[in-house]
Design a binder for these strands. Structure first.
Lengths: 208, 208
DNA sequence: TGTACATCAGTGAACGCGCGTTCACTGATGTAC
DNA sequence: TGTACATCAGTGAACGCGCGTTCACTGATGTAC
């Protein structure tokens, strides 16, 4: 055993399942986790549950990730990516000059409010992310910045600083409103809040 | 034992500790919990830790609360109350007509961003609250509404509906920005974000 | 062509740990008589 | 005035449970020879 580590491997052995098979399971774990974390929070969604939903047993988890923290970081990255992809689609299929408006309406839609598992990471996990240890927060900030960079081209502004400043106000504010909407029990009051917020943010950020 | 339950009690017996002593411990548990929940989240701050900080053992907890959920609800109520009290102080010591502006500056201060354990419940626990079972959310909504009613007199508006609409936009938005600020690793970027947000919200809501 | 064997994704049982909760007990109190 | 006793806040050990993690094992694969 100890010797094999030193021995030069001139060829690669076959694996039980194809590389594609493993990659597929890896993807499945990630996307199930990305949803589960946003839906139930990091502490309340366990590895066992995630793996069962993927169709595997929890023991196999560690062939894919080194720890739950690792999964968390990668699932959050996946969630930011999904969210970014959705936003880009909305922006690109909006009429000329209406991209940001369309994104605001998408973000503050009842649909988004009612499906946290498929929605914005900040609104679903923000405070929890802020409490994570530094090493985790550093990695999460990277994927958050990637998300921001995808949205930024659709934020009006003369300079990049101006765009950044607007983004940093608009998106966190919308996240807060969305969280607040999710806290609101009455469906009519929730939808009213979302509507007022759509009007407000559109007027402030997406009108010329 | 079984019989004593049926017997009519014509008087009340003395207790080991005075009523004040128990009430004091009750208060201590609540305020330690209110802080601990906001600092570490509901799942990560345990009854044992809270009781130890109060100077008691965890077994005694159930002489004060029926369950952890009960503590959570009451601690959140306490947190809303503390927050409301602080806000009122800020509002009342502000110059004439500057109350809301002062509250915005207080809310979006670096001090508030750096001490989640003593700050806004929505910013520290929002998504978690939205995930709680209905019975818990109902009780929490009550204390949130009490908080809102204390702030409302300082929100400008011709009708109550107008004030409500403004409150519902301003405070959740600020909560989102605060959470986002707490997620931001760079202290300078965090303070810059807070400053920009103070300017923005003041301009939008507290200027005539 | 045949066979021994290195591979590693996935299994399922087990581990230690901390949690919320329970419970028999303690002991200071002060009322009942 | 004296004493038996009901009280209940708080103690500390124990409970069951689910969690993240570990590990010996399985078994299909296909290369080395």
């Amino acid at each position: 055993m100890a010797l094999t580590g030193i021995r030069v491997r001139a060829y690669s052995y076959a694996v039980r399942y194809s590389k594609e098979h493993k990659a597929q399971n890896h993807e499945n774990i990630l996307s199930v986790a990305a949803r589960s974390f946003r839906e139930h929070g990091g502490d309340s969604s366990g590895i066992g549950t995630v793996m069962k939903k993927v169709g595997l047993t929890k023991g196999g988890f560690y062939r894919h990730f080194r720890s739950k923290d690792d999964l968390f970081v990668e699932a959050v990255a996946r969630a930011f990516d999904e969210m970014g992809r959705g936003m880009l689609e909305v922006a690109k299929s909006a009429p000329e000059g209406q991209a940001l408006r369309a994104m605001i309406e998408h973000y503050l839609s009842p649909r988004h409010a009612n499906s946290p598992g498929m929605g914005c990471v900040v609104s679903a996990l923000g405070p929890e992310l802020a409490r994570k240890p530094l090493s985790v927060r550093k990695r999460i900030e990277v994927s958050r910045e990637a998300y921001r960079e995808r949205i930024l081209p659709f934020v009006p502004g003369k300079t990049r600083e101006e765009e950044l400043a607007k983004f940093q106000l608009l998106f966190p504010s919308m996240a807060g409103v969305l969280t607040s909407a999710r806290m609101t029990l009455s469906a009519t009051r929730r939808e009213q809040l979302l509507m007022e917020a759509r009007n407000f943010f559109t007027k402030c950020f997406a009108e010329e």
